[in-house]
Amino acid sequence: MILLYKRYKLCHAVFMEASKVKDIKEKEIGDTMKEPKFSRLKEDIKAKIVHSEWKAGDKIPSENMFAAQYHISRQTVRKAIGELTEEGYLYAEHGRGTFVSERTIHTRTSKNIAVVTTYLSDYIFPRLIQGIEQVLTANGYSIMLKTTRNSRAAEARCMEELLSKDIDGLIIEPSKTQISCRHTSLYDQMDEYGIPYVFIQGYFEQMKKNLTC
C-alpha cells in the first residue's frame, strides 16, 4: 500500500508538472498568435499618425472598435495603445478617450544625421560612407546608417522609423528612381518637421528640389 501510494504521488506530481508545461506552451502559442495582430494594430496606428491621416488632437477609435476590427481582445488593444502612449504618439484623458499627441521630437538639436543607402556591399558605398562619417564626426555629429536593398517599401519603412526619432538631417540614396515615388508624404513630413534631406546617386523626378550632384 505504501509503495502504491508513493507511485500515485509520483504520477500525480508528474501530471501536475506536465499540466504546467502544457499551460505554459498553450499560453506561448496564444501569445505568438496574438503578436502579429498586436504588431499590425500598433503599426497601423503609428502609420496613420506619421502620414498625418490622424493629426494632433484627433481622438482615436475606442478599444472596443479596435478589438472588433482586428479580432483581438481589449487587453491586446490596450497593450498596443499603452506602448504608443509611452513612445509619445498618443495621450489619454480620463473619461474622454485617447488622442493623438503633439509630437515633441525634432524640436531640439540631436546631432544625429541619418544616412540611407540602397546597398553597402557595392565598391563605392564603403568609401562614400567613410567620407560622410569623417565630415560628420569632424563637425560633432553622429551617423545613423540604414540600407534599403533598393526596395521602395524598405525605404518607406526606414523613413517612418526615422520620423519617430530625433534627427537633424537625412542623406538618402533613393530606391528605384526610374519609378515614381509613392511615399512623397513622408518627405512632406520631413519638410513639416524642418528636417533637411539631400538626395545622392539619383533622385525622383517629382522631387528635384533637394538634388545634389
Rank of each mutant, 00 (worst) to 15 (best):
T117I: 06
K111E: 11
A92R: 07
E87W: 13
S175H: 10
I172E: 07
E86F: 09
S19P: 03
K25Q: 14
Y89E: 05
M33L: 09
H12G: 02
L145N: 04
T147N: 08
E43T: 07
L136R: 06
K22C: 13
K27L: 07
T212Y: 14
T137M: 09
S101H: 06
E35G: 00
D23A: 14
F38L: 05
A114W: 05
T118P: 10
L4N: 10
G140V: 06
T177C: 15
W54R: 01
C181P: 12
Q69E: 12
K165Y: 13
Y70E: 00
L3F: 15
M1G: 13
Y123N: 02
G57D: 06
D188R: 00
E192V: 02
E43G: 04
S73Q: 02
L211G: 03
R182A: 11
K208V: 03
H183R: 08
Y203N: 01
E63C: 12
S19M: 15
R157H: 08
R108E: 13
E133V: 05
K111Q: 12
H94Y: 07
I200R: 07
K176Y: 11
D58M: 09
Y141L: 01
F15S: 07
G131M: 06
L4H: 15
G88S: 01
E28G: 00
T104L: 06
I124Q: 14
A68D: 12
S164G: 06
V135E: 14
R40E: 11
T137P: 07
E43C: 05
F99M: 03
D44A: 14
S73A: 07
I2R: 15
I129E: 14
G88M: 03
S164M: 02
Y5I: 11
S101P: 09
G131E: 08
I72T: 03
K25G: 04
A153D: 10
D168T: 10
I179S: 11
D188F: 01
L136S: 04
S101N: 11
G169F: 13
I24E: 06
R96P: 14
K25C: 13
M65N: 09
P126V: 00
Y197M: 01
A154S: 09
L186F: 06
D166Y: 09
T212F: 15
D23V: 05
K25N: 14
C158R: 05
K146W: 12
I132E: 04
G140C: 06
A13E: 12
G194T: 03
I24T: 04
Q75K: 15
E102G: 02
S110N: 02
I24C: 03
A47C: 10
R127M: 09
S121H: 11
I60G: 06
K48T: 02
I2P: 14
F199A: 01
L145K: 07
T109F: 12
D166R: 01
M144F: 12
P174T: 01
E161S: 08
P196S: 02
L136H: 07
A47F: 15
R127C: 09
T32S: 08
L3M: 10
T85C: 10
A153S: 15
S101Y: 08
F66S: 00
E161Q: 08
M1Y: 12
V14N: 11
Y119V: 00
